[in-house]
Design a protein around this nucleic acid. Structure first.
Length: 292
DNA sequence: TAATAAGCTCACTGTAGAGC
DNA sequence: GCTCTACAGTGAGCTTATTA
């Protein structure tokens, strides 16, 4: 007895933005270039953990600052210090909270290039593609100058991604924001420390599951990539190793089914040449045959 | 065209920190 | 010290792009 859902024609942004759905795509977009909801999501994404990692700038904070007119685009994040006194006055804010946020914003200027590329929110350019581009071009200016042909000649960069990049870097509005980011001192270079420093794990693909005690998953991912390895989100026949921490998830059983070699955290640390923590994984689950 | 991987969103739990 | 909010960490599931 289901009744067909009639999708709204206009966005709730209040700017009479028409909702459009591109052929072959699922998502609807508000056509209005100044849609405040798109702006909120863009800034949230820019500040998110895997992008510029600005602690204290989550969904609610972005919503509040956009509503109050303090944030107008991603570059305006670096103008927030001008409003320090006004921010302290806000409900549930205080001097410490504001200073922590401003400090986190200042710190974010030092993030490596691949995080900035990811944070710009270019369609089809996620974390993985951002790393490939940063590694290949070394700085943002080289990426901005690259033609569609230059981009598609890179392994794993396809036509859609290249078109999206060229479209983004020829848009005058985006270029204006990028120039502001440059003027505020945001890092545009890929630092050596984020580029591969070894070939020990070259040609190997890893999948992480469960909770690691000695480092976060992101840290483990960075270690693997620095040593030339690849980290994937799902287990397949091509997976070389599954690294299983405490309480491993379904990827563990997937690995068993496919006969993929599973390493526990101790073995993983040995593989990457890291020291084991003092407690020697005292909290590892006893029922987990992985650790037998 | 199928397999694979990447990207993205959501849900859930635990924790930190600010306000009261 | 309690309450509330936001963040951190993680797994799962879905869609989509790339590759073979």
């Amino acid at each position: 007895d289901a009744v067909e859902f009639v999708f709204p024609e206009y966005c709730e942004c209040g700017l009479q933005g028409r909702l459009v759905r591109l052929p072959g795509e699922v998502a609807y977009f508000c056509e209005h270039p100044e849609c405040p909801w798109q702006l909120r999501r863009r800034i949230e994404h820019f500040a998110s953990r895997n992008a510029m990692d600005i602690e204290g700038m989550g969904e609610k904070v972005v919503d509040q600052l956009v509503t109050l007119g303090f944030l107008k685009n991603i570059a305006s994040v670096y103008e927030l210090h001008q409003f320090r006194d006004k921010l302290i006055e806000l409900e549930r804010w205080g001097e410490k909270k504001v200073d922590n946020l401003l400090e986190a914003i200042e710190e974010s200027k030092k993030r490596p290039l691949h995080r900035l590329i990811f944070g710009l929110g270019i369609r089809f350019i996620g974390e993985g593609a951002a790393k490939i581009l940063a590694k290949h071009f070394k700085n943002l200016d080289n990426i901005m100058k690259a033609s569609k042909e230059d981009l598609t000649s890179i392994y794993e960069i396809g036509e859609k991604m290249a078109e999206s990049l060229v479209r983004f870097f020829t848009d005058p509005k985006e270029l204006e924001i990028i120039e502001k980011l440059r003027a505020y001192g945001v890092n545009f270079e890929e630092k050596e420390e984020f580029v591969t420093i070894g070939k020990k794990l070259e040609g190997l693909t890893f999948v992480l599951t469960g909770e690691l005690q000695s480092m976060t998953r992101n840290e483990a991912k960075a270690k693997i990539e620095q040593l030339g390895g690849k980290v994937s989100g799902s287990v397949s026949k091509k997976t070389s190793f599954v690294i299983a921490g405490a309480n491993p998830g379904s990827k563990y059983s997937d690995a068993v089914k496919l006969g993929i070699k599973i390493l526990n955290e101790e073995e993983f640390l040995e593989l990457i040449g890291e020291e084991k923590p003092k407690d020697n994984f005292a909290n590892k689950p006893e029922s987990n045959t992985l650790f037998d």
